Computed example of a mutant assay.
Amino acid sequence: MRLLLVEDDDHVAAALSAVLARHGIRVVHARSGEEALRALLPDTAPDQPPFAVVLLDLGLPDQDGYEVFGKIRKRTGTPVIMVTARSDVRSRIHGLNLGADDYVVKPYDTGELLARIHAVSRRGAPGETATTACDELRLGPVHIELPNRRVSVDGTPVQLTRKEFDLLALLAQRPGVVFRREQIISEVWRTSWEGTGRTLEVHVASLRSKLRMPALIETVRGVGYRLVAPAP
């Protein structure tokens, strides 16, 4: 896997590059927004595979990180993970609403970051989007038909509300990956209103009850939720 790391701090970049390299990820380091945009030009490295992920720090010296993201989006559909020290909810919601594939707040756990990198790279892999976003998902006894919005457990249909289905489908397309509460609210409810948090908890509880699998959706305290794929 080839990754573009956009980070102006050389010490941070060197340490992270070393960790990623141990996991088979080849890192190209850009120290500014301008360097990042140049690196994404198709003729920059014609003999190299395209970047699987862009890890974009928002605190860049030459341009606003959100503006750089907008320019990246105009050039490529490569998945982008925003990385920032801005921990306020509004900043995270803003980044996700702009179209970022994920958003990580410093300081982060490198294990979680690796999981997120692999998750978004799978989503952006050629041919994979069509099978996960247009067909069906099987997670142990749970069968999710995305186009028909149908769910069954061990062959028995389960009636879900529209938001319950949207929530389950979101988590199920990236099992094992922790979704922050703000990200779920943004993608399922299309809002940044903090009052939606209680609604999210109710929907999670309802899903656990209707599917009769309370362990399927795990609460990650202080962060959000993830789907734990059951054994076949």
Rank of each mutant, 00 (worst) to 15 (best):
L113R: 04
P107C: 12
T129I: 11
R92N: 03
L98T: 03
K106I: 04
D154N: 09
D109G: 05
H143M: 02
L96Y: 06
G155W: 06
R92H: 03
E136M: 08
Y103M: 09
P107Q: 02
L114N: 00
D102H: 13
L146D: 04
R116Y: 04
S121Q: 01
E128M: 14
H143L: 05
L113D: 08
S152E: 06
L114Q: 01
L137A: 10
I144D: 09
A100Q: 05
S91H: 06
K106N: 07
S91G: 01
V142I: 12
L114W: 08
H143P: 02
E136L: 01
R92K: 08
H118T: 03
A125W: 05
N148C: 10
A100N: 09
V120P: 05
L146K: 11
V105C: 08
K106M: 13
G99D: 07
E145C: 08
V120I: 11
T129E: 14
V151R: 08
P147Y: 15
V142Q: 04
K106L: 10
I117S: 02
T110D: 15
A133T: 13
V142T: 01
L146S: 11
E112W: 02
V151K: 03
I144V: 11
G99N: 09
T110Y: 14
R149E: 15
V104D: 06
T129Q: 14
G140I: 07
V89H: 11
R150M: 12
L137K: 06
L139K: 02
T131Y: 03
N97G: 13
D154Y: 10
